[in-house]
Computed example of a mutant assay.
Amino acid sequence: MNHGQLIREISATEYAGFKAEEVRGFSGHWMVFYFVPAAYFLFDLGRRRGEAQ
């Protein structure tokens, strides 16, 4: 449906595929959001260890 208007009917397999793509996209974004702080702390800790020596 598009704005309440029926475009075409889809099969159960197509519906499951669309839902799977939606979940993959959501989880892919979370990977980016977790990577940024992890990279910051990993590189910052490495730099601080070098300063302490």
Rank of each mutant, 00 (worst) to 15 (best):
M1Q: 12
M1K: 11
M1F: 12
M1D: 12
M1N: 12
N2S: 05
N2Y: 04
N2V: 02
G4E: 05
G4A: 00
G4V: 05
G4Q: 08
Q5Y: 00
Q5I: 10
Q5L: 08
I7A: 02
I7Y: 01
I7W: 05
R8H: 00
R8D: 07
R8W: 06
R8L: 01
E9R: 13
E9G: 11
I10H: 03
I10V: 03
I10Y: 00
I10R: 05
S11V: 08
S11M: 09
A12P: 11
T13P: 00
T13E: 15
T13M: 13
T13L: 14
E14Q: 10
E14F: 09
E14G: 02
E14C: 09
Y15A: 01
Y15N: 08
A16I: 13
A16G: 10
A16R: 13
A16H: 12
G17L: 02
G17Q: 02
G17P: 04
F18K: 03
F18V: 07
F18I: 04
F18C: 01
K19G: 00
K19T: 13
K19C: 11
K19N: 12
K19P: 09
A20W: 03
A20P: 02
A20E: 11
E21M: 02
E22P: 07
E22K: 01
E22V: 01
E22M: 04
E22T: 08
R24D: 05
R24E: 01
R24M: 05
R24Y: 00
G25I: 01
G25Y: 01
G25F: 07
F26A: 04
F26S: 05
F26C: 06
F26L: 02
S27F: 06
S27A: 03
G28K: 06
G28Q: 08
G28L: 04
H29M: 06
W30F: 13
W30T: 08
W30A: 07
W30V: 10
M31S: 05
M31P: 00
M31K: 04
V32F: 09
F33P: 03
F33T: 14
Y34W: 10
Y34S: 07
Y34C: 07
Y34K: 05
Y34L: 12
F35G: 04
F35L: 08
F35P: 05
F35N: 07
V36E: 10
V36W: 11
P37S: 04
P37A: 01
P37I: 05
A38F: 09
A38Q: 04
A38T: 05
A38N: 06
A39E: 14
A39K: 14
Y40F: 15
F41R: 10
F41N: 09
F41W: 13
L42W: 15
F43P: 09
D44E: 15
D44H: 15
L45A: 11
L45T: 12
L45V: 11
G46F: 06
G46R: 02
R47D: 07
R47K: 11
R47I: 07
R47P: 00
R48Q: 11
R48F: 09
R49S: 14
R49C: 14
G50P: 04
G50Y: 13
G50K: 14
E51M: 14
E51K: 14
E51H: 14
E51G: 11
E51W: 13
E51R: 15
A52T: 06
A52W: 10
Q53R: 07
Q53K: 04
Q53A: 02
Q53T: 00
Q53F: 03
Q53E: 05
